[in-house]
Structures are given as structure tokens and as C-alpha cells.
């Protein structure tokens, strides 16, 4: 049984976890906090590592749950007005930044109505750039199932997208 090391196998997942937390909370500072908490929790459960099918899925699940919890608590706040996004180096013009910020919130809105497994697949495909095969391995599904779920997810996004657009931003 391959020995799982925190430093080499789990810590490198930090960016993936960050993107997931960011997708859900749309808040960079909050997302960073969540990733830290996630990693500490995963460390606390190190007895269970060897028993897991996929350590990555385990970490992502914890991260997702923490993110959803935090988000619920912040429901009252207008999460889309995240000042941090202004400082992103890759966004050049104000319009770009606005669009990107809207995109983030929009993405979140689009995804959150999907069933969990579809959300996971979209995250892994769209944001992490994983192949169907890789996604299947992480989520313990067959490649066929992944394709079907992704198809449904995108169709749903397309429909919802049209709705949102029709009612304006």
C-alpha cells in the first residue's frame, strides 16, 4: 500500500481546493481560509487515508462542505462585490474585471442548481481541465457516466443561462 504523505500528496491539492472554494464562495480571502481548514481537517483524519478510494475526492468533499457552510453564513452579504478580484493581475481592463467578477458569481449561480455529482464533474472538467478518464477515476464513476452527467449539466447550464440573460444582468 503506497504510503500517503501530506507534503507530497495532499498539500499539492491546495490550488484545486482553492478553486473549488472560490467557485462556491466567490471570495478569495474566505476561500484561502477554507483551504487551510480543509487541509488541517484532512490531516486530523490521517488514520483514514489508507482506507480511502481517492484522497483527492476526500479532500474536495471536505472543502466543498466547508465552503457551502461558510456561504450559508454569508448569505445576507452581497458576495458578488468582492474587492479582491480587482487586484487580480490577469484582468486587464475594468470591463474585463467586471465581466470576470460577474462571471464568477454567474458561474456559481449556474452550477448550484445542478445535482452534486454534476457540479463536481463540471468543476473537474471546466476548471481543473481533467479528461473524462481522470474524472471517472476521481469520482469513481465510469467514463460513460461522466459524459452523460456532463452533457446534462451543460444542457442545464445552457437553459439556465438563457433564462438569466433574458432577464438581464
Amino acid at each position: 500500500m503506497k504510503k500517503i504523505s501530506f507534503r507530497n500528496d495532499i498539500l499539492p491539492l491546495k490550488d484545486k481546493l482553492y478553486r473549488l472554494a472560490l467557485r462556491i464562495t466567490c471570495d478569495t480571502a474566505e476561500a484561502e481560509d477554507i483551504v487551510q481548514d480543509t487541509l488541517v481537517r484532512v490531516w486530523d483524519k490521517r488514520d483514514e487515508w489508507d482506507l480511502l478510494q481517492s484522497v483527492e475526492a476526500f479532500c474536495l468533499t471536505i472543502c466543498k462542505n466547508l465552503s457551502l457552510d461558510r456561504r450559508e453564513k454569508k448569505e445576507a452579504q452581497h458576495v458578488m462585490l468582492d474587492e479582491n478580484l480587482h487586484n487580480r493581475p490577469d484582468a486587464s481592463t475594468p470591463y474585463d474585471r467586471l465581466a470576470a467578477r460577474e462571471g464568477l458569481g454567474l458561474l456559481r449561480d449556474l452550477l448550484e442548481e445542478l445535482p452534486q455529482v454534476q457540479q463536481d464533474i463540471v468543476q473537474l472538467r471546466e476548471i481543473e481541465g481533467k479528461s473524462y478518464k481522470e474524472i471517472a477515476a476521481i469520482l469513481n464513476l465510469s467514463e460513460e457516466q461522466v459524459k452523460v452527467y456532463l452533457f446534462r449539466a451543460r444542457q442545464r447550464i445552457k437553459r439556465k443561462y438563457t433564462e438569466i440573460q433574458e432577464y438581464g444582468l
Binding site: 472560490l22 476561500a31 462571471g103 454567474l106 449556474l110 481541465g129
Partner: peptide
């Protein structure tokens, strides 16, 4: 644009 740009932003986070 929102959808794909949002995805790209996330990708690069």
C-alpha cells in the same frame, strides 16, 4: 462571455 471568462478566472486562481 460571463460563463467562459468566469471559468478562466477560476482556472487561473
Amino acid at each position: 462571455k460571463g460563463l467562459f471568462a468566469g471559468e478562466k478566472t477560476l482556472q487561473e486562481a
